[in-house]
Design a protein around this nucleic acid. Structure first.
Length: 597
RNA sequence: GGCCCCGUAGCUUAAUGGAUAGAGCAUCUGACUACGGAUCAGAAGGUUGCAGGUUCGACUCUUGCCGGGGUCACCA
């Protein structure tokens, strides 16, 4: 049983003994004692004052007395205003350290047969352009969320729905057909997704030109937009695609295959993956039956032009179209169908959509509609909503080419990390491949940590002029600390210092040592809270705090040259466990840590 | 206009309703002939957008306002 649980129970008893009242254990507020005060665990006694009918100080003292006498782990206490600070015995912390050492997968709860199955949908790219920084945020959040949920004992299916059809796809197809001159990734050496993206931009440029020309010729803006030849061409292409015209399908498959090859490279670079991929071209017709069923059951209604709608005014929302007057599906229809499909494919207990906050309304409506259609999971689906990544000049727009390209960004950061690393020259003896792998690890560590440490709900500003930092509260700072710990442990082995992993102390450990053990002991709590609140940032903050504390300790206390063997052994075992937690924690963010850097 | 999200130091940000709002960057000062200076110690920097309310206690909950973003398509 954890010390927190014991104390909670004992406080309930203390209050019963001292004040003859039974209280709920949830009334007991435990927190970590702030650094500036003495003690390890703090109890807020204000809630008990009403029961004790005594001053906060006196109440705290009485409870403190009881705990000191009845809980062996509590070695002493002090009272500051309404706060009861408990000092936990060093013996207890040493026993915790030993249990961490012997725990194979510390902080991780493995899934079992009966574990809940969570499906996480993320990434969900369009196949008409390469991935940019906004997609990176999505991919990193989705992947990390999946890892965190796994670490909390869930079965996780990571899924990706690829938007591989529609007018936007036809735009790049049309542009390539018109102006592509037979360019391919092979004959140009351009990465497939970038090549296709080039034609998506080309389309927009030509389209705008045509509109301008038409307006000059006296057309209205609206007419010009409708009648521009390239737009008509793209629309025609979409019709042909839907009619399964062989030539169009052939072009579509070819260009999509270029994009997929490109995406695979980017996904691999980012270290994200999927268990199941859905393609919109296969699922886009799915929801129609459900909508028709809803109409038959009177959940939806039909207008005179035979379009089908949902009335959500009772929920405080608007009318929502579900089938167009020509009988074709809209986005919402597809999502209804896809949701049903997924629940048929997997025994899903929880569905999480990692999608930008611009779609908050969409998912609010989706949840209500599924519920209205009688799907039990409707109410329970969760939209993991995150903010946009903006540039100093505003929103990123692929069409206009004002984006921070994912591949370029990563490549640029690898350059920086390579340069820094070469200056420091710590990688002597590494093969070029090992060194390159380390540069990559650091660059991605910087990028991933930069994005994941921020509250997902917030919009974030990215200034390409100011490159992402490698010092301070950053991924490389954490990686550096890990490398440093590994270095110490290597040297210890070199010097034939044998670690005694079952620490026994005859003297009292220093406060920094105890502080580190305490922090290490809180890792499982951080993992649990991150899982409950779906928050990678919580893990990032925890690891940062641990690392900062370790670096302070490192500067204050000699480890290898410490003459007292007992203390040296303690410090080495702590270092080893801190390293273990850093590695596990960073893994939950999708960040690898190097042996050297 | 309705609804949703955000507003903390110059910048990026942290804080289950709890103690003196905690960090990093940038600025200034210091620390490598001890284990890795991508580090550490220190200085300076805050009316937590504004005004009320609830509470023993509010960055946190609540009401109103101000500022920023999103959304309210027979686009996805």
């Amino acid at each position: 049983m954890s010390i927190e649980l014991i104390i909670r129970e004992q406080i309930v008893e203390a209050i019963e003994k001292c004040y003859q009242q039974k209280i709920e254990p949830s009334l007991v507020q435990l927190q970590n004692t702030r650094k500036e005060f003495d003690g390890d665990i703090t109890i807020v006694v204000f809630p008990f004052v009403r029961i004790s009918k005594k001053s906060p100080e006196q109440t705290a003292s009485e409870i403190g007395d009881y705990l000191q006498q009845n809980v062996t782990e509590v070695s002493s206490y002090n009272v500051v205003k309404g706060f009861l600070n408990l000092v936990i015995s060093a013996d207890y912390w040493i026993s915790i350290l030993n249990s961490v050492t012997s725990s194979e997968k510390y902080g991780i709860t493995e899934a079992t047969e009966s574990s809940k199955l969570v499906m996480v949908e993320y990434s969900s790219p369009n196949t008409n352009k390469p991935l940019h920084l906004g997609h990176i945020r999505n991919n990193l959040l989705g992947f990390s969320l999946g890892e965190i949920l796994k670490a909390n004992g869930n079965k996780v299916v990571k899924t990706n729905i690829v938007n591989d059809r529609g007018i936007h796809i036809c735009k790049s197809m049309y542009a390539w057909k018109m102006w592509g001159n037979g360019q391919t990734p092979e004959n140009t050496g351009i990465k497939g997704d970038h090549l296709v993206g080039k034609y998506y931009v080309k389309f927009d440029q030509e389209y705008k030109q045509e509109i301008a020309t038409l307006i000059e010729q006296g057309e209205t803006k609206e007419n010009a937009e409708q009648n521009a030849p390239s737009m008509q061409g793209a629309r025609e292409m979409l019709l042909k695609w839907e009619a399964k015209d062989p030539e169009t399908i052939q072009l579509w498959e070819t260009m999509n295959s270029w994009v997929y090859a490109g995406f695979d490279v980017t996904y691999k670079e980012l270290g994200v993956d999927f268990d199941k991929i859905y393609y919109e071209s296969e699922t886009y017709l799915y929801g129609k039956d459900e909508v028709l069923r809803g109409l038959a059951e009177g959940v939806f209604y039909q207008k005179e032009d035979s379009s089908i709608w949902a009335d959500l005014t009772a929920e405080g929302l608007d009318q929502k179209i579900l089938l167009r007057s020509d009988g074709t599906s809209v986005y919402m229809t597809q999502d209804i169908g896809t949701a049903k499909e997924r629940y048929q494919d997997y025994p899903i207990d929880k569905m999480i959509y990692v999608v930008g906050n611009e779609q908050n309304y969409h998912f609010q409506v989706l949840s209500i509609l599924l519920d209205k259609l009688g799907f039990e999971f409707g109410k329970g689906l969760h939209h993991f909503s995150y903010g946009m990544v903006e540039l100093p000049q505003g929103k990123m727009k692929s069409r206009e080419g004002t984006v921070v390209d994912a591949d370029d960004l990563v490549a640029g950061m690898i350059e920086v990390s390579k340069k820094t690393s070469e200056e420091l020259g710590k990688l002597e003896g590494y093969t070029p491949e090992q060194a390159a792998e380390t540069y990559r690890m650091i660059a991605l560590g910087a990028l991933k940590y930069f994005i994941l440490k921020v509250d997902p709900k917030k919009n974030m500003l990215f200034n390409p002029e100011e490159s992402i930092d490698f010092n301070g509260n950053t991924g490389p700072f954490i990686q550096y600390t890990y490398a440093r710990i590994r270095s110490i442990l290597r040297k210890a082995a070199d010097r034939k210092i044998e670690l005694n992993h079952t620490v026994v102390m005859n003297s009292v450990p220093g406060t920094k040592e105890l502080q580190l053990i305490k922090l290490v002991s809180q890792f499982p709590v951080a993992v649990k809270e991150a899982g409950e609140s779906y928050s990678p940032a919580l893990i990032a903050n925890y690891v940062y705090e641990l690392v900062k504390e370790f670096n302070q300790f490192y500067h204050e206390a000699p480890i290898l040259i410490e003459e007292n063997e007992e203390i040296r052994n303690l410090r080495l075992v702590i270092a080893e466990n801190v390293g273990k937690v850093i590695k596990t924690g960073m893994k939950l963010l999708g960040i690898d840590v190097p042996e050297r850097m």
